[in-house]
Design a protein around this nucleic acid. Structure first.
Length: 269
DNA sequence: ATTGAGACCTGTCGGC
DNA sequence: TGCCGACAGGTCTCAA
């Protein structure tokens, strides 16, 4: 998509988790994609119009790229005069017809995804982005930042890691994984990461490092959110042996905030 | 203000 | 074999 022009957008289902913005397809048509970036779990495509397209994949959303015919891009078939019907899969909700001759197709069975448009100049004012905490792999995120964000929090460590204001981009699976790597119990109070003045305790140092390690490893494997994937250390491993060296524990599962948490009660304290 | 529970959605899976 | 309820994920909304 980068440096290509969006020639036309087909919105086949405008009702993802939230309604699409006004005149969505019209505001995209004819615009060049200047760059693709990311903030937390949002994909960002900055456009030549001065607007940025925000996309969240939700749970089950994904893109695929297909070759596209010229007729499909302009929306009329010269021969028949009928709109061309490309092969579509179930749950293909949005199709971007690009000047490069590619069709970029957004498919999302559960429709937890979302798309929106916002002025690039005020992008951080968008409600989805305005409250986000630091990027976990950036220098802005360290033990001090984590401790500061958790200071005085009565909620659990697991809930704190899922709070995007504390650190942006961790989901349920990697929250469990990071707590395991750090050797911290998911039920422990978030406030215990900080001294009363907000300075980081040793647990904050371990957890910040564990978050970075877990995410870097996931990116290196190009591991998408393939839950039920056997490569996780604790996630979806209830009743299995703890994989930590010399730990004799058994992985347990409990519910926190309506979400499953997996952990080892022996090596996570 | 902070925290937690419920809602949204649908494919998959376990149990009957 | 077929049906059905429970469950999974991320984020927003509402209530305590």
């Amino acid at each position: 998509m980068v440096r290509a022009r969006i020639e036309r957008v087909d919105v086949r289902r405008p009702d993802l988790r939230r309604a699409f913005p006004e005149r969505f397809a019209e505001r995209l048509a004819g615009r060049r994609v200047e760059a693709l970036t990311r903030r937390a779990k949002y994909l960002l495509a900055s456009l030549s119009s001065g607007e940025t397209l925000l996309v969240h994949l939700g749970m089950s959303g994904w893109f695929r790229v297909e070759r596209d015919g010229p007729a499909a891009r302009t929306g009329t078939d010269q021969a028949s005069g009928e709109p061309p019907q490309a092969a579509r899969e179930p749950h293909d909700h949005v199709v971007f017809h690009m000047s490069s001759g590619k069709a970029v197709v957004f498919n999302d069975p559960r429709r937890f995804g979302m798309m929106d448009l916002a002025p690039t100049a005020d992008l951080n004012a968008h409600p989805a982005l305005s409250g986000l905490g630091p990027e976990p792999l950036s220098a802005d995120f360290d033990a001090a930042a984590l401790a500061r964000a958790c200071r005085g929090k009565k909620t659990s460590l697991k809930a704190a890691l899922l709070d995007q204001r504390v650190v942006a981009g961790l989901g349920n699976i990697y929250a469990s994984e990071a707590l395991h790597v750090a050797g911290l119990s998911p039920g422990r109070r978030a406030s215990t990461l900080a001294t009363p003045t907000g300075a980081p305790r040793e647990a904050a140092v371990r957890l910040a490092a564990a978050i970075k390690r877990v995410l870097e490893s996931a990116v290196a494997r190009q591991s998408g959110p393939l839950y039920r994937d056997s490569r996780f250390l604790v996630y979806d491993r209830e009743d299995e042996r703890c994989l930590k060296r010399k730990c004799s524990g058994t992985i347990r599962r409990r519910t926190q905030g309506g979400r499953s948490t997996f952990y080892c009660p022996v090596c996570q304290r």
